[in-house]
Amino acid sequence: MTFSPKLEEKFAKMLQAYPEGRKRSAVVPMLIYAQDEVGAVTPELIDEVARRCEVPPLQVDEVVGYYSMLHRKPMGKYHVQVCTNISCLLVGGMELYEHASKKLGIGHKQVTSDGQFSLEEVECMGACSWAPAVEINYDFYHHITPEKLDQLIDGLRKAH
């Protein structure tokens, strides 16, 4: 398996970052960066990361279930994450999540039939003082209301 030249360059540097014989350390970062490009943690990807980090595939496989951002099935092109943890909850985070679910017609960790959107109710994402907060892929959106969320989603739909 090969990745884009940019990612290959990143991985080459990454493997240098850890001391001799400690390539296993690159497993988690490599998985997450590669997942962004491949779309999911596939069996081939597990084998590839294992090969590059010089560990048995099992040692890569076993971390996948532990980290909530790693997934074996592809999420939507736009992965909408709504925080409902305490600070967000107090200012409408739960309503926002329910609104997003209705608007997209999907539930927690589900993907729309066209593969464009997926939804996840997430834990605190470090935006508590600017709640309620949403992260779409890796972009943060603060002080989000149901109306603003509609605009965001409609905008992404159009861009498609």
Partner: peptide, 27 residues
């Protein structure tokens, strides 16, 4: 030499010894 290292979603890794295991490439 200084490097960044990405986590992948786990509150538990804020605990220092869990973080170290994570940094070693484990759960």
């Amino acid at each position: 030499d200084l490097y960044t290292h990405s986590g992948a979603g786990a509150y538990e890794c804020g605990e220092e010894t869990a973080l170290l295991d994570s940094l070693e490439g484990k759960r």
